[in-house]
Design a protein around this nucleic acid. Structure first.
Lengths: 206, 206, 206, 206
DNA sequence: ACAATCGGGACCGCCCGTTAAT
DNA sequence: ATTAACGGGCGGTCCCGATTGT
């Protein structure tokens, strides 16, 4: 293995281990030592790649916005795209420890030297844009404020992920996603749209 | 001041200060020292009333279930009772630092020696019971699973409180509560009921 | 119960509990709290009777010299008196927690504000006097230094009690006392005396 | 200085300082701070080498069994070997702070999470084996129980070291050793052997 | 006189996140 | 990338008064 390749491996191992520990313990309670042990890496190696615990956490959190940023725009209707996005995210949450940790880190980031609400903002924004497009497509209840609805949805998803983590270690997240849409969709879209969109977990079929 | 009275004062000061610090920093990042300074109390006094940081946190959390347990049953219809409950809770959250902190502590309690999901459970239970009554009263969408809906609502409220804390330090929580009900109610109750219930913030008039 | 009587009871309970805890943990590791719990007495009561932990320990140690001081002079020959004394002490050790604790406290008293080697001194002195009398009675090996022999005996008994505590919680102390005399007597007294004295545990027959 | 060498130096300094403090104050009363100051080392350095105060104490105690284990078997008769061993140990006690502290730590180890009487056991064993060999060589009083005699000797030496520490900070230990042998030997060996063995402090001549 | 409550601080062992030297 | 060391500060808790009841 070339040195470069080894560096990539190490960096990845550290990042994954950090995400797992952050998710399990929370940022403040997580210790570098536990990350080290979990990654089977020495302190020197970690500090070579990341200057501090906070930098490590921020790097973990970047995975989330990266995931969001890399998602190709859907060709479906906006509402269907939103639903599909939610399921895709649910599965990303299940499969990618970095993303799973991001949620908790975002909630707890008050501790950071430079708390950055951009994480929520990215999501609220993406969803708002989709809702605005839905409005154009006539798929949004008239009189509904897209901005506010977006923020509620972000909050709800955040909370559902957190509680799902407590109740079932997150494994039943897709099911809860469905429960959520069943509850929310009628308040979000007109009846006509309701009959058209599908809350099926398309991502799960992968 | 009689000693007993002094003790009550001290205890209360500690509990309030602890709640504030827990809410601001999270459980793990909160330090006893900051609580001490904020309560203007010495370590000896704290140690007399609470044997440990964890015990302090658990006592703070008890405020939440106490609040829920002490709430008189409503004579309104179940759905209206649920809505009123949510606003009452939103205001309790604004006014009572202990309750505000409880949410965060409940989410983070994984660190505790004896993590107890009862906090969520109490809420899920209360809501489920209300939804079941609503079903009897013909005010619930047929085919809706009360248990699941209750869990989703708990998750949503949790997440909304958390994000509200990030965006506005919690002050706009009642407004967000309204946004949430507008979104959720159509999926929860039949149209007939929808026309009857009021999502007005009755508690705010207090 | 008259107040005075209650005070005596309390005082005694505290002293006994303290002795037990001191013996089990050693002076420094013993905590007032454990003594309190063991005596079923409150802090206020303890501090009414004893101004400090050290005073408590010193009072416990006084039991030892009190025991030695109250022992009636034996009418036997000096050597026999010495042997009897050792067994009597062994049994006092078994029966009286204060005396048992005294040994450990004496060894550890370096921590005290006013370390006082008198405890050893008392014993060394008593034994030296007995050995001197034995010399007069022709029952001591000629050429043996009574002072030195006395110090060795004190050391040996101390060590035997300590190790007996480790091996058997002290219960086999009388047996070990016998083992010691069998080993030491031939070096201490002439053969003629050896035939006359008895290493029987007279105190045990009580 | 190569890093490894520095580590060895630091480790040794910590160990020696710890032994001194343990010997002076006892395990429980000894503070890490005092050890730190005495070793002129920082907390971090200590923590790097030893995970806890207890581990430090256990490592100190290992010096004792290591010393015993490394002693070459004597070619002398068993009794002479025993005497020589005692003097060698007395001098090890004088010269090696770790060994000096071991005695006290062994007596006080009740506080430890895993109290291990092996320390006494090693000694009792070694001495018993020597006494058994002495019996084969006809150098032990017939009818003497080697096991019991060994335990008494261990106890006596322990106590003599402890009292010597109180009276003279340990400096007169070899002299007391001689006093002890003068007292014990006649009870241990037949007269014939007594004339042959020497209680001279051979180790002191070094 | 005797005891209980409540609070005061000092300080302890631990351990954490982080650099230097190599 | 590693080993070794740094030092701040954490939670805990201990020993002990000051104050108040009985």
């Amino acid at each position: 293995m070339t040195p470069q390749a080894r560096a990539v491996t190490t960096r990845h191992a550290v990042l994954t281990a950090a995400a797992e520990v952050f998710n399990k313990r929370g940022y403040a309670a997580a210790t570098i030592s536990e990350i080290l042990a979990s990654a089977a890496v020495t302190k020197g190696a970690l500090y070579f790649h990341f200057p501090s615990k906070e930098a490590l956490a921020k790097e973990v959190m970047r995975a989330q916005s990266k995931w969001l940023g890399e998602r190709p725009p859907s060709k479906e209707g906006a509402i269907q795209a939103l639903i599909d996005l939610s399921y895709a995210f649910a599965h990303a949450l299940l499969e990618n420890p970095l993303i799973r940790a991001s949620i908790r880190l975002t909630v707890e980031q008050g501790t950071f030297s430079d708390p950055n609400p951009a994480a929520y903002g990215d999501w609220a924004n993406t969803i708002r844009v989709l809702l605005l497009r839905a409005k154009d497509e006539g798929d949004l209840h008239p009189g509904l404020d897209a901005e506010r609805a977006a923020e509620i949805i972000v909050g709800a998803v955040t909370g559902i992920q957190l509680t799902s983590e407590v109740f079932s270690s997150g494994s039943d997240l897709p099911r809860r996603m469905t429960d959520m849409w069943i509850l929310i969709l009628p308040g979000l879209v007109p009846a006509r749209t309701l009959a058209r969109v599908s809350v099926r977990d398309t991502a799960g079929a992968r």
